[in-house]
Nucleic acid binder design. Structure first.
Length: 435
RNA sequence: GGGCUCGUGGUGUAGAGGCCUAACAUGCCUCCCUGUCACGGAGGAGAUCGCCGGUUCGAAUCCGGUCGGGCCCGCCA
C-alpha cells in the first residue's frame, strides 16, 4: 500500500512503499540522498546500495518511481524520518534534463516571466510555484464558503453570448456557425437576472477581455468572482465585499502560512468593513501631497490608487479601502445613481495593496429608468443581448447591487506577487495563448 | 493604440569597438566523497551573442530595419 510523504514518520520501524517524482538528488558517494515528491510533499530516501544508485544513472529530476524501504526516525532528516535500504522501481524514466531547475526557486523577475510561462508544465512542479496555486485554491474555496454563508447560491452563466452589450471593455468576437458571437466579459446580466430567482447569486468562472493591455494587472482571460444580491443597501454591499476579502485572507494564512512566508508575504491589516474615501478626497489628498494636480478628474490614475493605499495603510491601518462617489457622467447604464447626490453613481472600487481588485455598485432596478439609460447609450433593446436581461426587470427585480472581483488579482496581492500572471497557472495575455 | 526599455550556452547573468579563440553561476556528463538538505572537490561537453542589412581595417559591442519579450499610460478585475 502506498504511503504519502506526510505519513511516513508515522511508520517508523516498518517497511513501506512510497511513490512519486525524483525532486532532488544529492549523491555523496557512499551516502545518497534522494527527495521524492508526492502530492503531500517531500520524503527523503537514503540509498547506500550501489546497485540501487546505479538504477538512477542517466535519469533526471522528474523520473517517476516507487521506493520501498524501512522508515527510520532521524532528526537529521527533513520531517524527522526517512527511508533506508531503499529499493527503487522506476515507473517512468526521464532521460532529458528539464529546461528549468525545479528544485530551487524560479526566477520571477519581470524580464524573465516569458521563460517562466514558456516552461510552465514543469516549472509548476517547483514547490513554490505550486504553492501559489494551492493558496489560490484555498482563496477560491473561502470566497465560495463566505458567499454561501451569506445565502448566495452558486450558478454558472454562459460564456458564449450573442453580442457585446455590457460596454466598456473590448470584447472577443468569434464565428458561431456563421453568426457572430462574443465571449462574456462578466456574468453581469445573468447574475442580475438570477436576483429574481435566488435573491442572492454568485459564480466563479473565467471571463474574457480583449483589451490591448500589457500591464502587470491584466490578462485576457481571468477568473471572475461575480456576485449579486437583492434587497441590499450600498453599505451592506460593501460589508459583503469586505467579508469576502477577509475570509480569503484568513483562510490563506490559516492554511498556508509557511508557504506565504516563503514568498515573503505579510498578513494584510484588514478591518471588518473597509473604510470609504471619496474620489474627490483622493484627488485632493494626492494633489496636495505630490504636486500633481488631479482635482476634477473623473477617474483615478493608477499612481493615485497606489498612493492612497499607502496613505490608508499609514493613517487608517488598513490594506484595503473603498473608493466612492464616482461621477454619474462616467457611470454604466446599469449603475444606480445616488438619490441624494445624483451627480454620483453608487459605485465602489475596492483597492487592495495598490490595485483595484473589485468593483461594486448598486444597480438601476426600475424597468423604465433602465430603458431610459439604455436609450442614452443608443442600445437596441430588441437585441437578444438586452432582450432577456430586460425581461427580468419588466417582471420584477428588487433594489440590488453586486460586485465583480478578480481571483488572480486577489491572490496576487495576498502573496505579494508583482504581476497577476504569476497568480495564474496558464496565463493568457495579448501575445500568449499557450501553454 | 501611444511611450520607454531589453534580447549573449538549457536557465540566470557579465562583457559596451581590437585584450572575445566570448567570461561567471547553475544545470548536464565523467570521476572522488558515509549525514546531505543551494552538499563539497576535480575534469568535460554545451553559444556562429534574436534575425537581416549597414558603418569600420576590425562589431556581441555603433547605426537602420525586423521579430520577440518586459514596463508604463489609456481601459479594467
Amino acid at each position: 500500500m502506498r504511503i504519502l510523504s506526510d505519513d511516513v514518520a508515522n511508520h517508523a520501524g516498518k517497511t513501506i512503499t512510497i511513490s512519486g517524482w525524483i525532486h532532488k538528488k544529492r549523491l555523496l558517494g557512499g551516502l545518497n540522498f534522494i527527495n521524492i515528491r508526492d502530492r503531500r510533499g517531500l520524503t527523503q530516501v537514503l540509498v547506500e546500495d550501489k546497485k540501487e544508485v546505479e538504477k538512477l544513472r542517466g535519469l533526471q529530476i522528474g523520473t517517476v518511481l516507487n521506493v520501498t524501504g524501512e522508515v527510520f526516525a532521524d532528526e537529521r532528516a527533513p520531517g524527522g524520518a526517512e527511508i533506508h535500504e531503499a529499493k527503487l522501481e522506476v515507473i517512468t524514466p526521464v532521460i532529458d534534463a528539464p529546461p528549468v531547475e525545479i528544485d530551487k526557486p524560479l526566477d520571477h523577475k519581470p524580464d524573465n516571466l516569458d521563460t517562466l510561462f514558456e516552461y510552465r508544465p514543469i516549472g509548476l512542479r517547483n514547490l513554490q510555484e505550486a504553492a501559489i496555486l494551492k493558496i489560490q485554491a484555498v482563496v477560491k474555496d473561502a470566497v465560495r464558503k463566505e458567499l454561501q454563508a451569506n445565502d448566495f447560491i452558486e450558478f454558472n452563466s454562459p460564456k458564449l453570448l450573442p453580442g457585446a452589450t455590457e460596454g466598456g471593455a473590448e470584447v472577443f468576437k468569434l464565428d458561431y456557425f456563421g453568426k457572430e458571437a462574443t465571449l462574456a466579459q462578466s456574468a453581469q446580466f445573468y447574475k442580475q437576472i438570477l436576483v429574481g430567482v435566488f435573491e442572492r447569486a454568485f459564480e466563479i468562472n473565467p471571463t474574457y477581455r480583449a483589451e490591448l493591455s500589457a500591464t502587470t494587472r491584466h490578462m485576457t482571460e481571468f477568473m471572475h468572482i461575480d456576485a449579486e444580491a437583492g434587497f441590499v443597501t450600498f453599505d451592506e454591499l460593501m460589508e459583503i465585499m469586505s467579508g469576502v476579502v477577509n475570509a480569503a485572507v484568513e483562510a490563506a494564512w490559516a492554511t498556508y502560512e509557511p508557504e506565504l512566508k516563503r514568498w515573503n508575504a505579510t498578513k494584510p491589516k484588514l478591518p471588518k468593513v473597509f473604510p470609504q474615501i471619496t474620489m474627490a478626497e483622493i484627488h485632493e489628498k494626492f494633489s496636495k501631497a505630490t504636486g500633481t494636480n488631479t482635482v476634477g478628474e473623473k477617474d483615478l490614475r493608477p499612481e493615485e490608487e497606489k498612493w492612497i493605499c499607502e496613505w490608508a495603510k499609514k493613517n487608517l491601518d488598513t490594506d484595503a479601502l473603498f473608493v466612492t462617489e464616482w461621477p454619474a457622467s462616467e457611470a454604466k447604464f446599469y449603475h444606480k445613481l445616488d438619490d441624494k447626490k445624483p451627480e454620483f453613481a453608487l459605485r465602489c472600487d475596492l483597492l487592495f495593496r495598490g490595485v483595484e481588485i473589485s468593483t461594486g455598485s448598486m444597480r438601476e432596478n426600475d424597468y423604465n429608468v433602465l430603458l431610459e439609460q439604455l436609450k442614452i447609450i443608443g442600445a437596441d433593446i430588441e437585441h437578444p443581448g438586452f432582450k432577456y436581461y430586460l425581461m427580468a426587470f419588466k417582471y420584477g427585480l428588487p433594489p440590488h447591487g453586486g460586485f465583480g472581483m478578480g481571483l488572480e488579482r486577489l491572490t496576487q496581492k495576498i502573496i505579494g506577487l508583482n504581476n497577476v500572471k504569476e497568480a495564474s497557472a496558464f496565463p493568457r495575455d495579448i501575445n500568449r495563448l499557450a501553454p
